[in-house]
């Protein structure tokens, strides 16, 4: 359903991604781990073209972007709508309430009616446990609540795949659980997810597969039990020893 072929990304002289190949099946939850600077966030950002890959082919449900050729802006916007992005720093729109944050995409991009958008936004906020906070501004919400609004905002576009970029890294420890719970619920419902995270428990409990990246390449890929208890590669072992 999602495929990445020969993905390269270069920032100036620095090559961050050195040929990533990855297939992700529908409904699968993939957790990406790796040391900082390994390129995992960059890979995620390439998937919704917040970074333009230097070369490579990305395709989601038959929609393909080949970056070895030029890609028109129009195609990028359409491609982005297939993905929902959740940011480490939430990036909610501070001048809009929780409800307005979630309604923005459906109204402006999908051209839905206000009423329909409001109904859906309300349902999504209830789903992430914020039914009583819909008229709050982001500044009035805790980090965990803001991140859950962020998830609802991404879901509102009805994406084919949800991309999570270290969604709990900026949170106080006691707020991590509420965000992970929402993510686990999503996984259970069959949402396709690619999650960059340092939460190994989430990886163990919710991931179908774990990918270990280092220095711009995929080093190892396996089911969670295998990768955590019996890593094949020396680099994976070293990394897991360091964080555990």
């Amino acid at each position: 359903m999602i495929s990445i072929q020969g993905l390269y990304k270069q920032f100036g002289n620095l090559e961050v991604l050195k040929g990533i190949d990855l297939e992700v099946g529908k409904g699968k939850v993939i957790v990406v781990i790796g040391p900082s600077g390994s390129g995992k966030t960059t890979m995620l950002r390439c998937l919704n073209v917040l970074e333009t890959p230097t070369k490579g082919v990305i395709s989601i449900e038959g929609n393909t972007l080949d970056f070895s050729k030029g890609v028109p802006k129009k195609n990028i916007a359409a491609f982005r709508r297939l993905t929902g992005m959740v940011f480490q720093s939430y990036n909610l729109f501070p001048h809009k309430t929780a409800l307005e944050n979630v309604m923005e995409g459906p109204i402006i991009v999908k051209k839905e009616s206000r009423d329909a958008a409001r109904k859906m936004a309300q349902a999504l906020l209830e789903k992430v446990g914020l039914g009583d906070k819909i008229d709050y501004y982001p500044a009035q919400l805790s980090g965990g609540q803001q991140q859950r609004v962020g998830i609802a905002r991404a879901l509102a576009m009805d994406p084919k795949v949800m991309l999570f970029d270290e969604p709990t890294s900026a949170l106080d420890p006691e707020l991590v659980g509420e965000v992970l719970k929402v993510m686990k619920d999503l996984a259970t419902e069959g949402m396709t997810m690619i999650v960059v995270t340092h939460e190994m428990r989430f990886a163990r409990e919710a991931a179908d597969e774990v990918i270990f990246m280092d220095q711009g390449v995929v080093v190892e890929r396996n089911i969670p039990e295998e990768i955590f208890t019996n890593p094949k590669q020396e680099r994976t072992r070293k990394f897991l020893n360091m964080i555990q």
Binding site: N48, L50, A77, A78, R80, R81, T83, G84, M85, F87, S89, N91, L92, F93, E104, G105, I108, V109, K110, R153, A154, A156, M157
Partner: peptide
């Protein structure tokens, strides 16, 4: 910059 990215990530255009 995250505000631009958040907007783009829900499919908005530059002018939107």
């Amino acid at each position: 910059k995250g505000q631009w990215e958040a907007g783009y990530s829900i499919g908005m255009s530059y002018s939107q």
